[in-house]
Amino acid sequence: MLHPKSDVDRLYLPRSKGGRGMIQLELSYKTSTIGLYNYLDNTEDWMLQLVNRHENSKRLHSVTKESDKFSRELDLEIEINNLLSPTEIARKTKKKAKHEGLKQLESRWQEKPLHGQFAARANNADVDTQATHQWLRNPGLKAETEGFILGSTGSKFCFTRNYQANVLHNGADPKCRFCDERIETIDHLVSGCSILTPGEYKNRHDRVGQYLHWKICNRFSIKTQSDWYKHHPEPVTEGKDVTILWDFPIQTDRTIQANRPDIVIKDRKNNQCFLIDMRVKVKVKVMNQTPGAEKKNYVDINNDQPEDRFLRRQDYVAPQVWNLSVDVRAKDSLIAGDETSMSD
Rank of each mutant, 00 (worst) to 15 (best):
V286C: 01
V286D: 13
V190F: 11
D262K: 08
N270W: 06
N271G: 07
I183M: 06
T255K: 15
E184V: 01
W214V: 07
D277P: 06
Q289A: 11
N288P: 00
H169D: 10
K230H: 13
K269V: 05
Q164E: 14
D267M: 06
V242N: 07
N271Y: 12
W246F: 12
S191A: 14
C179Q: 03
G199V: 13
F274K: 06
N288L: 05
D187R: 10
W228K: 03
K266W: 04
P233Y: 01
N170E: 05
H169Q: 12
N270A: 07
D247Q: 15
H231W: 07
V264Y: 00
L245V: 02
P249R: 08
A258H: 10
G209K: 09
D173W: 00
I222L: 08
K266V: 07
N166K: 13
P198M: 09
S221H: 09
V242D: 04
D187Q: 12
H213N: 11
E238P: 04
T185E: 04
I276F: 03
T252N: 03
Q251K: 14
G171S: 08
L168Y: 11
R268C: 05
Q289H: 13
Y229E: 10
I222H: 06
K285G: 11
E184F: 00
D187L: 06
D277A: 02
F274N: 01
V286K: 07
Y163L: 01
G209V: 05
C179M: 13
D187A: 15
T197P: 01
P198W: 09
I276T: 02
D247N: 14
A172F: 00
N270Y: 08
L168R: 15
A258V: 03
K283L: 14
K175V: 02
P233K: 06
R219L: 08
Q272I: 12
L168D: 03
V284Q: 11
Y211W: 14
V242Q: 05
V282A: 10
K269H: 09
V286E: 11
L196H: 03
Y201D: 11
T185C: 06
I263W: 01
F248V: 01
H205Y: 08
T197K: 13
N259T: 08
K281S: 08
T197S: 15
K223W: 02
S221Y: 07
L168F: 08
I195C: 06
D241V: 02
V264I: 12
D180I: 07
V280M: 09
V286R: 11
V282S: 11
V264D: 00
K230Y: 03
I263C: 06
K281N: 08
I256K: 05
N271C: 10
I263V: 15
L189H: 02
C193Y: 05
T197C: 06
V190N: 10
E234Q: 14
P249Q: 10
D253R: 09
T185L: 01
T243M: 04
